Computed example of a mutant assay.
Amino acid sequence: SGEKANEDLYVVKIEEPNKSLSGSEASEDQPSTEKRSLESQNNSKDSPTSCSVSETPTSPQSESTSVYKPPDLNRNITEIFGKLINIYRALGDDRRSFSYYKAIPVIEKFPTKIESVDQLKHLPGIGKSLTDHIQEIVTTGKLSKLEHFETDEKVRTISLFGEVWGIGPATALKLFERGHRTLEDLKNEESLTHAQKLGLKYF
């Protein structure tokens, strides 16, 4: 029995290294989960797919687009019409003032230089009277009606008074008929309201 026990012990001594060896082999052949996770992370860093940068093409609609504004090629006409608007407003003639007011944006948007009234056919807001004015401006570079207004004392005075805050065309005409010709004359006018006097003071 002693030999058997010794054999058993011997066997045990022989088998234990085998168990430890198999355990060592298992640890070498089967990496731990943590080691596999680390290698997976390293592989993902070295993988070309992880380094690829996705580029999103810019949509043309996302880019801001500026609104096209045609050049004012006919400023020689629109500037004269603008002066006539102010004159007719000062004279209290809203109908004629509005006709020039409607014509200006049509002329401003015209794509080419106006050199003949034939180019204005079928344009909205351009009647015979305005067509004649445009023809004169294109031909001579000026408008006789405007020159007449600018040299007319009545028109010039009423336009000046109408620029004062609180004084409209009707009041400006009355002030002219009372003999006033300059802003200095208005300082002694007793009929002016408090608002009109303030407008004259800070003009």
Score class of each variant (00 low, 15 high):
residue 22 S to L: 14
residue 111 P to C: 09
residue 174 K to A: 05
residue 88 Y to L: 05
residue 41 Q to R: 13
residue 114 I to A: 06
residue 200 L to Y: 02
residue 51 C to R: 10
residue 21 L to I: 06
residue 94 D to Y: 10
residue 75 R to T: 13
residue 54 S to R: 08
residue 59 S to L: 10
residue 184 E to V: 12
residue 17 P to G: 01
residue 3 E to D: 11
residue 38 L to I: 13
residue 4 K to I: 08
residue 75 R to G: 11
residue 15 E to Q: 11
residue 18 N to V: 14
residue 85 I to Y: 07
residue 34 E to G: 09
residue 26 A to C: 10
residue 70 P to E: 07
residue 130 L to S: 05
residue 93 D to E: 13
residue 15 E to I: 14
residue 145 K to F: 07
residue 18 N to W: 05
residue 75 R to V: 11
residue 100 Y to R: 04
residue 2 G to W: 08
residue 169 P to I: 00
residue 17 P to A: 04
residue 184 E to H: 05
residue 88 Y to F: 15
residue 80 I to F: 02
residue 20 S to W: 06
residue 155 V to G: 01
residue 203 F to Q: 07
residue 138 V to R: 00
residue 126 I to E: 08
residue 168 G to L: 01
residue 175 L to C: 02
residue 135 Q to G: 09
residue 147 E to N: 09
residue 103 A to I: 04
residue 23 G to L: 12
residue 109 K to D: 15
residue 26 A to V: 09
residue 27 S to I: 09
residue 23 G to E: 11
residue 26 A to Y: 15
residue 137 I to C: 08
residue 51 C to Q: 12
residue 179 G to D: 06
residue 62 S to A: 13
residue 108 E to A: 07
residue 41 Q to D: 14
residue 25 E to D: 13
residue 46 D to I: 04
residue 14 I to D: 09
residue 141 G to I: 02
residue 137 I to R: 00
residue 95 R to H: 15
residue 179 G to V: 03
residue 55 E to F: 15
residue 79 E to R: 05
residue 21 L to S: 05
residue 197 K to P: 05
residue 48 P to D: 08
residue 162 G to S: 12
residue 183 L to I: 11
residue 127 G to I: 05
residue 24 S to T: 10
residue 75 R to S: 13
residue 32 S to V: 03
residue 61 Q to P: 01
residue 141 G to A: 03
residue 139 T to F: 09
residue 94 D to T: 15
residue 199 G to A: 04
residue 90 A to V: 02
residue 59 S to Y: 03
residue 108 E to F: 01
residue 10 Y to P: 02
residue 141 G to W: 01
residue 49 T to Q: 11
residue 96 R to T: 14
residue 55 E to Q: 13
residue 55 E to N: 11
residue 125 G to W: 07
residue 17 P to R: 00
residue 46 D to K: 14
residue 9 L to T: 08
residue 18 N to G: 07
residue 14 I to A: 10
residue 112 T to P: 01
residue 116 S to H: 12
residue 188 N to W: 03
residue 176 F to A: 00
residue 132 D to N: 12
residue 5 A to L: 13
residue 11 V to M: 10
residue 186 L to D: 11
residue 139 T to P: 03
residue 86 N to W: 03
residue 122 H to L: 15
residue 103 A to W: 04
residue 114 I to L: 08
residue 168 G to H: 01
residue 122 H to V: 09
residue 102 K to D: 13
residue 122 H to T: 10
residue 96 R to H: 04
residue 203 F to G: 03
residue 146 L to D: 06
residue 19 K to P: 01
residue 179 G to W: 03
residue 27 S to K: 15
residue 76 N to A: 12
residue 52 S to D: 08
residue 123 L to M: 14
residue 41 Q to M: 14
residue 110 F to V: 05
residue 15 E to K: 09
residue 142 K to Y: 09
residue 177 E to P: 00
residue 30 Q to C: 11
residue 131 T to G: 14
residue 64 S to Q: 07
residue 120 L to A: 06
residue 54 S to G: 07
residue 108 E to S: 08
residue 97 S to H: 02
residue 108 E to I: 11
residue 119 Q to K: 09
residue 79 E to V: 15
residue 146 L to R: 00
residue 52 S to G: 06
residue 7 E to S: 11
residue 187 K to A: 05
residue 141 G to Y: 00
residue 46 D to A: 14
residue 39 E to T: 10
residue 135 Q to W: 02
residue 128 K to R: 14
residue 90 A to K: 00
residue 87 I to H: 08
residue 107 I to F: 03
residue 58 T to R: 09
residue 102 K to M: 13
residue 158 I to S: 01
residue 73 L to V: 02
